[in-house]
Structures are given as C-alpha cells and as structure tokens.
C-alpha cells in the first residue's frame, strides 16, 4: 500500500528533528511566549475551567473572540485552528446525526453547539499557551508548582533523546525490511501489506526495548554522578534552578486585563443572553 509506505517513510529522523526545531525555535518571541510560564499556565487553567461554568452563548462567544484575537497576535498558523475547529464540528455532527436517529431535533444541535463552543475555547487556550512555550520553561514552571522532579526532568530528557530514539527505531524497522518479505499478494485494499507493516512495527519493539534498556542504564548512571538524586532531595537546589523565573510587570498587566475582560464578558452576557430555550419535559 503506497500511502502506508509514504507514511512510514515520514518517521525519518530528519522530519522529527524538524518538528522538534519548530517546537524549539517556534514562536518564542510572540506575546504569549514572552510571558512568565507560571503566569501563562495559571491563565490557561482559568480558561480550561471557566467555560464549564457558563451555558450562556454570549459569554462563550465573548471568550471565543478573545482567544481568536490572542491567537492571531501569537502567530499561530491558521491551519491549526481550522483543523481543530473542523474536528470538533464533525464530532458534534456525528452526535447530532445519531441523535436525529433517536428522534432528536434542532434543540439537540443548539445544545451541542454550546458544548462545542466550550471545547473550542479550551482547546484554543491550550494552543495559545503551549504552542509558544519553550518545553524547558514549561518544565521549570511545573517544578515551581512542586510537581515531582522526575516529571520535570522527563520533559527535558525527552527533548534531548527523541531524535536518537527515533533514529534507533527507524534503523531497526529498516533492519526488518532489509531481511523481511513483503507479501506478493496484496489482498483486498492491500490488507496483507497493512498487516505486514503493522506486524513489523510491533516486532521492532523487541530489539528496541533491549537496546533502550542498555542506553537507559548509562543515562541513569550519569545522572547519579551529576547529582540528580542530590538535587531532588535538596530544596535549595530547586530554588537555585528556578531563580531565573521572575514575574514581570507585563505579566501583571496581562493578568489584570484578563480578569477585567472576563468580568466584562460575563456582565454583557447577562445583559444580552443568547440562550437555548429549554423545553419542559
């Protein structure tokens, strides 16, 4: 199957590195990227929770508008937003479609629209914050929220090891291909080939696990020598590591503005509500 082969060939080290570089060099100098990571995360948490508290479409639309404006100044590619919206809308579409089969009507559509609006706001908020956040800063922010040191370390470790591990997997996968045999008979919709590639992808994990185990041992030994365990046990190390994080005036202004905006939107929403009519049972 041609498309599968194409897809598999995409797991090249080069492509992954490019993705990583996008994350690494991506939109760091955007407005959201320059915020203190802790402030950004708190901001996100507010918008991950607040949409669940309102069923008033005016309020939700207000938040949506805020997100769209923020995203546009964060230079997030419009494609991402469109894809996201498309995904959420089709999902709602299926629910509406099936509910019509169960005797639903347009109230269902309205209800779902509100629901989808909530999900969209939350997703956009996460894109606004995390698409432009440096993984290192993210990990430090988590550390300052007192998440376990292992978790925070995991982020930067993944950042470091991903290309190596992908290359290794790629080599092993190719090792299978260089000695394997593609089924000559392709079967209906190439299913035999699909099975061949899936099986190979699974089989490749046997060598992968053993090789990674060997690799991990050196890493942990090196961590031990470099004082990683020591750092987990000593509070002053955490403070030293996080000493560079400082809340700037811009963070405070942004935060105050956001609170003000939330209050305004809620107020306007109450004045001019667009609400679903609730049919009595």
């Amino acid at each position: 199957m041609k498309s599968i082969k194409d897809l598999l060939s995409k797991i090249t080290v080069e492509n992954i590195k490019i993705e990583l570089m996008r994350t690494a060099y991506g939109n760091k100098d955007t407005f959201m990227g320059k915020l203190d990571p802790r402030v950004a995360i708190v901001w996100y948490l507010i918008f991950a929770i607040i949409p669940w508290l309102f069923w008033n479409n005016t309020i939700l639309l207000g938040f949506l508008l805020y997100m769209v404006v923020l995203l546009s100044i964060s230079r997030v590619s419009p494609l991402i937003i469109i894809l996201l919206a498309f995904g959420l809308v089709t999902e709602a579409g299926y629910i509406i479609f099936v509910s019509v089969m169960f005797g639903g009507d347009l109230t269902a559509a309205m209800a779902l629209l509100t629901f989808t609006l909530k999900l969209t706001i939350i997703s956009l908020a996460s894109i606004a914050v995390f698409a432009s956040m440096d993984p290192e800063k993210f990990s430090d922010a988590l550390m300052s929220f007192r998440l376990p040191g292992q978790v925070c370390f995991g982020i930067s470790y993944g950042y470091r090891m991903l290309p190596i591990l992908i290359e290794e997997y790629n080599n092993i996968f190719n090792s299978f291909r260089l000695r394997g045999k593609v089924p000559e008979d392709r079967g209906v919709i190439h299913w035999k080939r699909v099975v061949y590639y899936c099986k190979t992808a699974v089989f490749a994990f046997y060598p992968m696990m053993l090789n990674t185990a060997k690799r991990t041992r050196t890493t942990v030994e090196a961590l031990e020598v470099k004082g990683f365990t020591y750092s987990l046990k000593h509070e002053e190390v955490r403070k030293l590591k996080l000493s560079y994080l400082r809340v700037q005036p811009r963070d405070i202004y942004f935060f105050i503005f956001t609170i003000f905006l939330i209050i305004t939107v809620i107020y306007i929403g109450h004045l001019y509500p667009i609400e679903r009519e609730i049919h009595p049972l």
């Binding site: 169960f102 269902a108 629901f115 009595p280």
Partner: peptide, 17 residues
C-alpha cells in the same frame, strides 16, 4: 457532556447518541 449541556434530559436524542 452531562455537565457541559444544560439539562441534558431535556434535549431529545443527545444522550442516546
């Protein structure tokens, strides 16, 4: 869904769906 859609039982079809 339960929490996100106000008075879910009032909207025919969605719950089943």
């Amino acid at each position: 869904v339960w929490f996100g859609i106000e008075e879910l039982e009032a909207v025919p079809g969605v719950a089943e769906s």
